[in-house]
Structure formats: structure tokens, C-alpha cells
């Protein structure tokens, strides 16, 4: 009983506090970069696609709205052959961004995802991929990873020693 009265009281108190809602679309709230809106795929500082098609975002997605296929360029760099997000299913939970080991997939403050036709909410890679690095400017996965790609040979990643000469028995 007491708790119910208390609840009523708290609700009543709110009548006098300032409204959080704004007169959208005339008024627009300030949205911070970590707001979880429309998803983009970013590029690394060298302008290459960051996504390596590891599939972690798809696996973690609770509504299974990400589908992609890995492929590889001649230099051994992995990238998605196609990358599709069905925004008519996406709940903008941000788990994909959290799972992504390359900072490729990022949620942006753009929440205005309205379409008359659901089909227009199916975004392919060309709709998702932006030119910049998004929220994480410096990071390039391949500079850290051990796999050699064009322009980064074995031993040239961060914290890597030059390749072993297997003919040597020296320590």
C-alpha cells in the first residue's frame, strides 16, 4: 500500500519537471556519436574496407539481420563479397559494433530510418560503406594481425620480429 502511494507520488512529481520530449522534426535533439542509429561500414586509415568478413557481427546479432559472405583479394586480404543488413529487422542494439574486431561496423546517430516499402530497408554493402573511419580514426586491423597482405609482409605488423630463417639453428 505504502509503495503504491509512493509510486503515485513519484509519477505526480514528474508532472512538474521539464519535458524530455522535443518538437521533432522542427526541433532536433543533440545526439552523441555513440548514439545507436543507422549502421555503417567504415574504412581504415588507408582507405581500405575495414570489414574482414569475420562474421562475428552476424553471429552476435540477436535478430539475425546481418548476412555476408567472405571473399579474398589476390593479396590475401579478406573482405565481404556481399554485406547485407535488413534494417526492417534490426533493433539497433549495437551488439554488432561491440563484437566487431576491426571497428568496421559502427552505429551512427542517424535514426531516421523510415520507408514506405520495407524492401528499401535492405541495405547492401554499397549502401553501408562510408568513405571515412567513423568513430575510431587510427585503427587498422591488418597492421596488428599476423596475416600478410599487399604492402605488409610477414614481420611488418606491430610487435613482429622479422620472419625466421628456418635454415638457422642459432638461438
Amino acid at each position: 500500500m505504502i509503495s503504491q502511494l509512493r509510486t503515485l507520488w513519484i509519477v505526480l512529481k514528474h508532472t512538474f519537471s521539464r519535458a524530455d520530449t522535443v518538437q521533432y522534426p522542427e526541433q532536433r535533439p543533440k545526439l552523441y556519436p555513440r548514439y545507436r542509429g543507422r549502421i555503417v561500414l567504415t574504412r581504415d586509415p588507408d582507405g581500405e574496407e575495414r570489414c574482414v568478413a569475420c562474421n562475428l557481427c552476424a553471429a552476435v546479432c540477436p535478430v539475425d539481420c546481418i548476412a555476408l559472405q567472405k571473399t579474398e583479394d589476390v593479396d590475401g586480404r579478406w573482405y565481404p563479397e556481399f554485406f547485407r543488413i535488413n534494417f526492417s529487422r534490426c533493433i539497433l542494439c549495437g551488439l554488432c559494433e561491440e563484437a566487431c574486431p576491426t571497428y568496421a561496423i559502427q552505429l551512427t546517430p542517424d535514426f531516421e530510418l523510415c520507408e514506405y516499402d520495407r524492401r528499401n530497408l535492405v541495405y547492401e554493402k554499397e549502401h553501408l560503406l562510408i568513405q571515412g573511419t567513423g568513430k575510431y580514426p587510427g585503427y587498422s586491423f591488418y597492421r596488428v594481425a599476423g596475416k600478410a597482405i599487399a604492402g605488409k609482409d610477414k614481420g611488418q605488423a606491430e610487435n613482429e620480429a622479422p620472419p625466421i630463417d628456418v635454415h638457422s639453428l642459432l638461438p
Binding site: V63, I66, A67, S88, R119
Partner: peptide
């Protein structure tokens, strides 16, 4: 049980 992409893999063909 971790199968992914169910709601996207065919979305380009039929929503």
C-alpha cells in the same frame, strides 16, 4: 544454435 543471417540472407530477393 548460433546460425546467423536468417532474416537477411534472402531479404534481397523477398523481404
Amino acid at each position: 544454435h548460433r546460425y546467423s543471417g536468417r532474416t537477411a540472407m534472402l531479404a534481397d530477393i523477398r523481404i
